[in-house]
């Protein structure tokens, strides 16, 4: 029998492709992970504090304690992701050693390197990275990211930044598709991204890896909005477990992500969910997490 090759680009991007149309939920305990799986989450993000608490409590936010990640891995059968600080390749090495299914090189944690992201090609575990625009997305892909998500403004319960990022990325993908062969070099220069990736986007009309939405999703209608804009799946951070009835809200967001084009179903699942997370106006923030990363 022919050789069996692990950790290939095909296999790394493949898991992201399997998560399409799903909801990835932030959880801080094994019990929350089980609630997420019961509700139909496609994966969980294991962390010590949800972004809303990181924002409220301040201080340096780091990779989670391995025992917490292991407890959550044992609690569920779905994929488990965990966050490393931007540029902190040693944290990513630890997460790979823990056999998490995806590493999120995340602006929600305090960056460890002000100039460089992790060289993700050097790892066997796949990576997801945030992006606010097409150039940033393509730079992360050139470094080896196998999935891109919008950054949004984590922990705010405010969808406005995620919408801005999705519109920027998808709008520029459409615009690049109109460029002639000479103009692609201009786009590569303007986006500060490799010209071969710019050409691939222009030819295919999409990123080479799945594009998910993260940052600020708090309601079923929020997920229906970003899915209709062109996100292929959603991450929900503080929006579920900072709400009044997490189990019901989690289920409602899962159903709205599947039936995002069916307003009757979105209406049905939105009824009587209890209070959403309180939310923050982004103009009033001291710390803009989306500005982290380069």
């Amino acid at each position: 029998m022919d050789e069996q090759r692990t950790a290939t680009t095909r296999v790394k991007r493949g898991l992201a492709e399997m998560l399409r149309g799903g909801v990835i939920m932030d959880v801080v305990t094994p019990e929350q992970a089980r609630i997420a799986e019961d509700a139909g989450a496609v994966a969980v993000m294991a962390l010590e504090r949800v972004p809303a608490d990181i924002r409220a409590q301040g201080g340096v936010a780091r990779m989670s304690d391995p025992s917490l990640i292991e407890g959550i891995k044992q609690a569920v059968t779905i994929p488990v992701m965990a966050k490393a600080r931007i540029g902190h390749f040693a944290e990513a090495q630890v997460l790979e050693a823990l056999e998490v299914d995806y590493v999120d090189e995340s602006e929600v944690l305090t960056p460890a390197d002000e100039a460089h992201h992790i060289d993700k090609w050097a790892f066997r575990v796949p990576f997801v990275c945030g992006a606010t625009n097409l150039g940033e997305a393509l730079r992360r892909i050139s470094e080896g990211a196998a999935m891109i998500r919008s950054k949004g403004e984590a922990g705010t319960g405010n969808i406005v930044e995620a919408v801005r990022h999705l519109r920027s990325i998808l709008g520029d993908i459409r615009a690049v598709g109109q460029a002639d062969s000479a103009e692609r070099y201009g786009w590569a220069k303007r986006l500060a991204a490799p010209v071969d990736l710019v050409a691939e986007v222009a030819d295919t009309g999409r990123l080479p890896v799945p594009l998910f939405c993260a940052g600020g999703i708090a309601t079923p209608a929020d997920t229906a909005l970003v899915m209709q804009l062109g996100a292929e799946a959603v991450f929900v951070g503080s929006g579920i477990f900072k709400s009044e009835d997490p189990a019901r809200r989690a289920r409602a967001i899962v159903e709205a992500t599947t039936h995002f084009e069916d307003a009757e179903i979105v209406a049905k699942v939105s009824r009587g969910l209890g209070a959403p997370m309180p939310g923050l106006e982004t103009a009033a923030l001291d710390q803009r997490m989306a500005e982290r990363g380069w």
Binding site: M1, E3, T6, T8, V11, L15, M18, P79, P126
Partner: peptide
């Protein structure tokens, strides 16, 4: 996921040689 892999498969009912297969979890 770290054990996900790709490999060529012999599928006798298919003509035209091995089938490349991607296994994800």
């Amino acid at each position: 996921q770290l054990a996900s892999f790709e490999s060529d498969l012999d599928v006798p009912v298919l003509e035209g040689g091995p089938l490349h297969a991607v296994f994800i979890r």
